[in-house]
């Protein structure tokens, strides 16, 4: 390990995690404050102007209908990020609960969970989701709910295998001997020990959801055309790459930067929290 830079108190190995955290906090703030920061109404058209590149009036230029790309990016952060936050929370809650129950209780629930996750792993889930939501004319909310279900199997499997090894440990026996209920042991004693994994699952689910949901928008599924949204902006503006590339490239970069930052943070949080804990699945 390299020695810390003189005058700095931050160990070099913590730099990537910290940068990621700062990036995510800035993106979250911008998402919340977007409506107050946007210089233009994201829906305001200026057909006479059309698509122009970045300039003094429009920081990142305009799209085909003369709408301000920067303002649309700010407004689009909401649908692009809030959905994935809900999906990540939902997937983690569902996957952790079911995985914990399956691994700790075993029995018929475990058998069902294993077969069900086997089934979901064996089919091209995202493809089926695109078709189902597309055919049913599903809304943004439908897509969010469907992605919660689609993401759960990974969490179920990971948490289950950890719960399996935890239930053999002495503290679980001790708690049993004291007459604590299964539910109490699972959620008050075992779950806290799985915190590193649950936290990193949360961030990884967020990355999966961010890419999947913006992908659905890119295909024109879920959100009505014209909504300011990162995925939809990529779809709508891919034909004006020669006039104003930023209209499509900027949302691509934002999605990727957010996903990379969340992945790195997930790794680092896991390393940090699991230091000193035996957590090998």
């Amino acid at each position: 390990m390299a020695a810390p830079v003189a005058g700095s108190r931050i160990a070099p190995r913590r730099v990537p995690g910290l940068i990621s955290l700062v990036v995510l906090v800035v993106i979250a703030l911008v998402t919340l404050l977007g409506p107050w920061l946007a210089p233009y109404d994201p829906g305001a058209q200026n057909a006479a102007l059309g698509a122009v590149g970045p300039g003094a009036d429009h920081l990142l230029g305009t799209d085909n209908l003369g709408r301000d790309v920067f303002s649309r990016l700010l407004a689009g952060a909401r649908t692009a990020l809030i959905g994935p936050i809900f999906i990540a929370a939902g997937t983690t809650a569902l996957g952790t609960t079911l995985g914990l129950l399956a691994g700790f209780r075993r029995g018929w629930l475990d058998a069902i969970m294993m077969r069900l996750t086997d089934l979901m792993f064996a089919l091209p889930g995202l493809l089926i989701l695109i078709v189902v939501v597309g055919i049913a004319g599903g809304s943004y909310v439908t897509a969010v709910v469907a992605l919660i279900v689609l993401g759960a199997p990974v969490d179920i499997r990971v948490i289950r295998s950890l719960a399996l090894s935890q239930r053999e440990l002495a503290y679980v026996d001790a708690a049993r001997t004291m007459g604590l209920s299964d539910r109490r042991i699972m959620f008050r004693h075992v779950l806290p020990n799985l915190a590193p994994t649950v936290t990193s699952n949360l961030l990884l689910s967020f990355v999966f959801a961010l890419i999947a949901l913006s992908g659905l928008s890119f295909l024109g599924i879920g959100l009505p055309a014209g909504t300011p949204d990162w995925g939809l902006m990529i779809q709508e503006n891919r034909t004006i790459l020669d006039l104003n590339p930023w209209a499509a490239v900027a949302p691509v970069l934002l999605i990727t930067i957010t996903a990379v930052a969340a992945t790195i943070l997930g790794d680092k949080v896991f390393e940090r929290l699991s230091a000193g804990k035996e957590l090998t699945a």
Binding site: I234, V249, V252, T256, A259, T263
Partner: peptide, 13 residues
């Protein structure tokens, strides 16, 4: 972390 349609777009550009 790079969505395939994002890579596609950056390559196209």
């Amino acid at each position: 972390a790079f969505p395939p349609f994002g890579i596609a777009l950056v390559l196209l550009y």
